[in-house]
Design a protein around this nucleic acid. Structure first.
Lengths: 144, 144
DNA sequence: TTTGCTGCAAATGCTTTGCATGTAG
DNA sequence: CTACATGCAAAGCATTTGCAGCAAA
């Protein structure tokens, strides 16, 4: 299942790569995991991979366009499967919940602003931080 | 001139703090400097400050609301004087030029999106990355 | 004087790299 | 068989912290 993607981007099909891809694909691929998260997950399932390998593989995946790297508050990078369409993120400062959204109004406005300033827009990073009013929001600091 | 701000926020008026404030205020206060930048600037002007002090002071300034910290691409944090009104940034991937902008359309839309997802919006980070078409853009990698 | 500040060096947290061994193609 | 992958330990950065000495109020 994951071997096709690996071959496509010219990476050898190895166990660590397959496993990491599988972890990212869980729950529909809409996860945002740190390298450490993935490493722990591997260890938990009895795999013998080094943290360095996790970082190396994730970087290769990013270069290959398989995953996207984000820099949310908190120092560490988080990775998610590249699901094709671009999206931005909103995350809860209380419980760390992350939701994705796409908004054409904002996308369009960004291009206009870039043009006004004499820039050709290449990419952007938009992250909204807030408190989710969900009753089941466990009011504790985010895991990452 | 900077001593007033320091007293206001309950920090003792010391030479390192005055100097760092002065550096941030240069060029109208619209600079985006890393701790290292500021440290080098101090050293260059013959001051005997430690890098640790620069970090400590910047963190205190941030807590006091005197400066804002941003996480642009590149690992290090950059600091700018808190000029009161919120704004976002657009920066050139080629020359590192940074421009600031405010857009009500985007601001409003962000609040709407947050509300739609059941979030009370606390803050946000919006950074546009592009290539500035300025003829004098020195096509080399950004300094930070 | 007393509390808070500073420099220095050491410690930290995340991420990358060097190297010898192992393995996919 | 050969080029690429891996694990481990060590190295790298950016940033923080412990501590003894100094200085602002």
């Amino acid at each position: 299942m994951g071997s096709k993607e690996l071959k496509q981007v010219g990476l050898k099909v190895t166990l660590p790569r397959m496993k990491i891809l599988a972890i990212l694909q869980e729950h529909g691929g809409a996860q945002h995991l740190s390298a450490e998260d993935i490493y722990k997950s591997l260890i938990a399932s009895g795999e013998e991979v080094g943290l360095a390998t996790v970082y190396r593989v994730l970087t290769q995946f990013e270069t290959a366009g398989l995953v996207k790297r984000h820099h949310f508050e908190g120092g560490q990078s988080v990775f998610e499967l590249n699901q094709g369409e671009h999206h931005d993120h909103i995350l809860c400062l209380q419980c760390g919940r992350i939701e994705e959204f796409v908004d054409e109004v904002i996308e369009t406005r960004q291009r206009e602003i870039a043009a006004q300033h004499g820039f050709r827009l290449a990419e952007h990073s938009l992250i909204l931080y807030g408190n989710c009013t969900n009753p089941d929001c466990p009011h504790r600091p985010p895991t990452h």
